[in-house]
Amino acid sequence: EWCEALHSFTAETSDDLSFKRGDRIQILERLDSDWCRGRLQDREGIFPAVFVRPCP
Rank of each mutant, 00 (worst) to 15 (best):
K20A: 09
V52E: 03
D34F: 11
V52F: 00
S8E: 12
C36H: 08
P48Q: 07
Q26H: 11
I25E: 01
L40E: 00
A11S: 11
D15H: 11
L17N: 02
C55Y: 10
P54I: 12
R43T: 08
D42Y: 04
E4N: 05
A11W: 02
E44L: 05
R53Q: 14
R37H: 04
D32L: 00
I27P: 01
A11E: 04
W35R: 15
E44K: 01
S8I: 01
S33A: 09
A49Y: 07
Q26N: 03
P56G: 13
R30C: 10
D23Q: 09
D34C: 11
W35F: 15
L31N: 06
E4A: 06
F51K: 12
I46S: 08
D16Y: 14
R37N: 02
E29A: 10
R43P: 03
L17D: 02
L31A: 03
C55W: 10
G45D: 03
R53C: 08
E1Q: 09
R24D: 00
A49L: 11
E29M: 05
Q41Y: 12
S8R: 04
S33I: 06
P54W: 05
V52R: 01
S14W: 07
A5M: 06
T13Y: 08
L28E: 02
S33T: 10
L28S: 06
I27N: 02
R53W: 04
K20E: 13
T10A: 12
D32T: 10
A5N: 04
A49N: 11
V52A: 07
I46W: 13
R37G: 03
C55N: 09
H7L: 10
L6Q: 12
S8C: 11
C36M: 15
S8N: 15
G45I: 06
V52Q: 02
T10G: 08
S14A: 14
E29G: 10
F51L: 14
A5S: 05
I25S: 00
G45W: 00
G22R: 02
R53D: 11
W35T: 14
I46D: 09
V50I: 10
D16P: 03
V50M: 14
S18W: 06
R37S: 03
F47Q: 00
E44I: 13
A49T: 13
R30Y: 14
F19M: 04
R39F: 04
A11G: 14
I46C: 11
C55D: 11
R43V: 08
P54S: 10
A11Q: 06
C55G: 06
S8V: 04
L40V: 11
D42T: 08
T13N: 14
Q26G: 02
R53L: 06
R37Y: 14
T10V: 10
D15E: 13
P48W: 00
W35S: 10
D16H: 15
I25W: 00
A49I: 09
P54G: 08
R30H: 12
I46T: 13
T13S: 14
Q41C: 11
E29S: 07
R30K: 12
A49F: 13
C55S: 11
H7R: 14
S14V: 12
S14D: 13
R24H: 12
L6G: 07
D23R: 02
G38V: 00
R39W: 01
Q41V: 08
L17H: 00
R53T: 14
G45T: 00
G22S: 02
F19P: 03
W2F: 15
C55E: 12
T13D: 13
L40S: 07
T13I: 05
E4R: 04
W35V: 12
D15T: 11
F47Y: 00
V52T: 10
E4T: 12
Q41E: 14
G45F: 07
E44P: 03
E4I: 13
D32G: 11
E29P: 02
S14H: 12
G22A: 03
V52W: 02
F47T: 01
R53K: 14
D32S: 10
K20D: 07
R43Q: 12
G38S: 00
F47H: 01
C55H: 09
R24Y: 11
D42W: 05
I25P: 02
K20R: 12
Q26F: 08
R30D: 00
E1D: 15
D15N: 11
L17V: 01
R39H: 01
R24L: 11
E4S: 04
W2T: 05
I46E: 06
F19K: 03
T10L: 05
H7I: 14
D42K: 11
A49E: 07
G45K: 01
C36N: 05
